[in-house]
Each structure stands twice: as C-alpha cells, then as structure tokens.
Design a protein around this nucleic acid. Structure first.
Length: 308
DNA sequence: AACCAGGTGAGGA
DNA sequence: TCCTCACATGGT
C-alpha cells in the first residue's frame, strides 16, 4: 500500500536515522530507502517535511510507520531536556534530524549480539547472511526480499551454519539466544511492560550460574532496551561513547571513572559490570530521562570526529 | 602486518 | 567483585 506521512516541522532526517547504527537492514537504492520489517517490505523517501511510503503489505501502514519512527512523541521536549552543554548541543546541530527508532525487539536483540566487537559494515553483512539463509522471502516490485528469521528458524540452525554466515564465535551465542526465546525461557514482551531496571534484569540475569541469553552483556542489553523497548534512559557504552565521555565528560563521571575509561582505551581493558553501571548511572543522572537520545548523538559525534 | 571494530564469557585473585 | 585474556572475521 502507498501513503505519505506529514512530518510537519519536526526534526527528521531519514538518511541520518537509517545510517546511525541502530538498524542494519535498510538499504538505499535510487533515492528510496528499502527496509524489511516484521512481515513485509517497505520503501520510504523523504522530501522535506513529507515521507512517502510504499509497502508490500497492509500491515505496514501509516500507523505502523509512525510507531516505527517514533513520530508519536514530543521530540522538541526530548531535545530541550538533553541540551545540557555545548558538546551535546553541537552534536544535535551537526546531526539535526536524528531520531531513535522503535524496532522489533527480537531482531534488535539478535542484531546486538552479532554487533559485539565488530564494525557496522560487517554487522550488516552478517545479518544479511542469516536473513538470506533463514528468513522467509517476500515478493515486492518483482524482486525477492528476505525477512528477519524467526526465533524458531534460528534455533533450528546449526552453529556450523551460523559460522558460515561469518558470525565467528558469536554463532553459538546467537543460537543460545534463539533457543531461549523460542522455548519461552525468555519472554521479550516483558521488556515492553517493565521499567528499565526490570528489563536489564531480564536480559542479563544469571540463572544457576548460566545465562539464558549468552552474548548479552550490559552494553547489548542497553541497546535493546533503548532501540526497541522505549527505555529512553538507557545509555549504551561502547568504544565510541567511551572516547566521547573520556574526552568531553570527565568532570561529569568523576576522576576515578574517567581513569577507567582511559585504561579501556589505551590498555584494552574492558569495563567491569560495576564500572559500566556506575558510568551509565552518572551519565543518566546528568542527561536525565532521555539520556539515551544524548547517547545516540554522542555516538555519531565520536565516530565523525574522534576516529584516528 | 599489526590493529581495530556499537563486547562478552570463562576463569582466577 | 574485579581483572585478564581469548575470541572469528574482515577492513585499513
């Protein structure tokens, strides 16, 4: 079906959003962004304040896209809440039109297991590979597209097959996660109902010394909660955020935590869980309820300016 | 050819 | 609890 969304004058830049590293499946072809979401394919194109959409199924309608791009929220309110200093203000200017996406939780969860210790181009390739191998196909404009595989499809995959998709050592983690979701040990719909702390508990708790969700640590959990569960205070700390915080927010996190950040950057030491939580807690109380938005601006800023 | 990438789990002090 | 290290793979 075909429809157009009026963006009015809310900050919205579809290219910045879809290239921001929250999602890994959208592709730009001759002026349109093509995406595979849930059970269908959609292509979108922004002309100023209007977003044209053409989808393969009636399920992907106006309401669906508004929800996906979070056009149902008071974004100006978000911006004014996180504008705490010159660094974040300039990041907002530089990446004006960046928004958070509300993506399906299952796809988000698997994506950020795959994303660990990798880079965005390769993450895209790995995910594309598992979709081609395990996802069902949809016909759209005469071409076949692969949907994201279901928990059942992925839990039926062998570790060897997943390794052949280029997942490396993540293959066994993806399979364990798929099994946990498929057999009901983990209920992802809980994440939408509960608060941030409860969601974090569900994703990284340990059961009998063994994790249900192998491959999900604090950072991946925060990404899932922020990008797919409306937990806007989640503040994922990856290497780029580590750089940004070490450079611009030493005084916010304090001398001791800043020292740990520096150790991580130079000595390749990783952050202990307690250190990670202390850091994200400081940053959360500094930026407020929408800290996750600030995180996403800082992530883009760091990648643009803090690369070697 | 080392080094890095939206980190995490296992094992030990 | 924290720290150290291995870990697959592909790009620079």
């Amino acid at each position: 079906m075909e429809f157009t969304l009026n963006l009015h004058d809310t900050p919205f830049d579809v290219s910045i959003i879809l290239e921001s590293g929250q999602v890994f499946r959208w592709e730009n072809k001759d002026g349109w962004w093509y995406g595979m979401i849930d059970s269908g394919v959609v292509k979108v194109r922004q002309d100023g304040s209007s977003l044209r959409c053409i989808s393969s199924t009636d399920e992907i309608n106006q309401e669906y896209i508004r929800t996906y791009f979070r056009l149902d929220e008071d974004f100006e309110g978000v911006l004014s809440a996180i504008m705490k200093d010159n660094v974040i203000n300039e990041a907002i200017q530089r990446f004006y039109g960046l928004r958070l996406i509300r993506q399906p939780t299952w796809e988000c969860l698997v994506s950020f297991v795959i994303a660990t210790n990798s880079n965005i181009p390769r993450i895209r390739r790995m995910i594309s590979n598992i979709c081609r191998r395990y996802g069902s196909t949809v016909l759209f404009e005469g071409l076949e597209y692969n949907l994201f595989p279901t928990p059942q499809a992925l839990s039926g995959a062998t570790v060897k097959d997943l390794e052949e998709c280029g997942l490396g050592y993540r293959a066994k983690y993806v399979r364990r996660v798929a099994e946990a979701v498929n057999n009901g040990k983990v209920d992802l719909s809980e994440l939408l109902i509960g608060n941030y702390e409860q969601g974090r508990e569900t994703l990284i708790r340990k059961v009998l010394g063994k994790k249900d969700l192998l491959g999900i640590g604090p950072k991946a959990a925060d990404c899932v909660l922020l990008f797919s569960c409306d937990k806007d205070e989640a503040f994922p700390i990856d290497v780029w955020i580590t750089r940004a915080v070490e450079k611009y927010y030493k005084t916010v996190v304090g001398r001791e935590l800043a020292r740990k950040l520096k150790l991580r950057l130079s000595g390749r030491q990783n952050l202990a869980l307690g250190t990670y939580d202390a850091l994200s807690s400081r940053l959360r109380s500094y930026f407020g309820t929408y800290a996750g938005y600030a995180q996403q601006y800082l992530f883009l800023l760091a990648r643009a300016t803090l690369a070697d």
